[in-house]
Write a protein that binds this DNA or RNA. Structure first.
Lengths: 211, 211
DNA sequence: TTTTGTGAACTAGTTCACAGCT
DNA sequence: AGCTGTGAACTAGTTCACAAAA
């Protein structure tokens, strides 16, 4: 059986990404086969959970044997939509934006940063260390539409985030990853994820208090 | 009644942080009182959830009236352990580390970045734009112990993360916020949070695929 | 025999709905 | 009258345990 897709929870989707990272790690170690049991032990995950998550998308294992690392990895890449390189733009050419633009996580493995945008004349026309150009944010819509860009990453100040997100929606991106410390919402048809880096820090602060 | 603290879930802890951000926003708008209903409508949160979360820590509202913004904010600051400034260090003085070191989110509201650390001789001895010094990572343990630093933020490459986390544990930090793309674990007594920025990006990729 | 894939059982998290204060 | 605080009902997510397959 294959491809029964109800609505997949964010929990499952997040773990797929974790599994992919773990498999890449096994692959570089030269491990070719792995059981859910061994996989779970190695990366501190639940074997039952692994099997359930994977079974949502098909039968990728062999009973009595386990999973073939390279095969499972290919499947996960395909499930996550990373099979072909996805072009994205980053709005906000501050240090976070520049760090992300040049980071291996954002440039390798399924993503390519097409351009950065900013409204600061001193930044417009420059490029990042890795050579990604910084454009005027006024050209955002044009470049997104022309380049068939599906994802916009927002690394602008909180005050600008809502307006910039609006422009992205208008330019027909399919997904927005917002790092500005405001909780944005997007219309149906656009997937938006808020990532506020201050939250894990405050959460940490909460848990390290004396009982 | 007040202060029944079983174990508070990460979900609740995360929302406390969200509520705090939302209250700050109301405060700047000059709003002094708010009901869970109005609060929820304004920030797209569930009123029942808000009441339940808050009730875990005490009775902060007034029946028939609602919550006083400034009072609730003070309580949340205290609950999250942000009442006195917490000093933290950032290990890894790359662009992400520097961006976080100088970002208002990390420097205001309960946190102070005491120092950055790196192993690159070109970076050691310099300081960030905001004037935070970059030390040799060899001095990490010494400075953490002397400065009674409770939190270490890791912005090092994946390959160095485990070793650096070990040093932090040895130096007796209470919490580690790991941005390196490896899932680390810490011994009991040390709270560790992994934040892999590639995961929300891959999750986004998953959800924006055609059905 | 081993290990997957999966319904059933369980646990955690959320929402409902109303008693209890103000 | 109005809104909180909270047990009870519900929903979502995880783990168990075993039949099915290699």
């Amino acid at each position: 059986m294959s491809l029964r897709r109800q609505t997949v929870s964010e929990f499952t989707a997040t773990r797929l990404s974790i599994y992919l990272r773990a498999l890449a790690s096994l692959e570089t170690e030269g491990i070719r086969h792995v059981s859910s049991e061994a996989f779970g032990r190695r990366f501190d995950l639940s074997p039952a959970q692994i099997r359930k998550d994977l079974a949502t998308f098909g039968e990728f294992g062999v009973r009595g044997v386990g999973y073939e690392v390279s095969v499972l990895k290919k499947h996960l890449i395909s499930i996550l939509g990373l099979g072909h390189t996805r072009r994205l733009v980053i709005v906000g050419a501050g240090r976070l934006g520049q760090a992300l633009a040049d980071s291996p996580g954002f440039t390798s493995a399924g993503f390519a940063v097409a351009a950065l945008f900013d409204n600061d004349p001193k930044k417009i026309g420059t490029e990042t260390r890795a050579g990604i150009p910084v454009h005027d944010v006024e050209k955002l819509s044009e470049i997104v539409k022309l380049g068939s860009i599906a994802i916009a990453v927002l690394t602008v100040p909180a005050s600008a985030a809502r307006e910039v997100a609006g422009r992205c929606v208008e330019a027909r991106v399919k997904g927005i990853l917002n790092f500005a410390p405001v909780r944005l919402t997007a219309p149906p048809g656009v997937k938006l994820k808020n990532v506020d880096l201050k939250i894990p820090l405050e959460t940490l602060s909460f848990y390290i208090q004396k009982p």
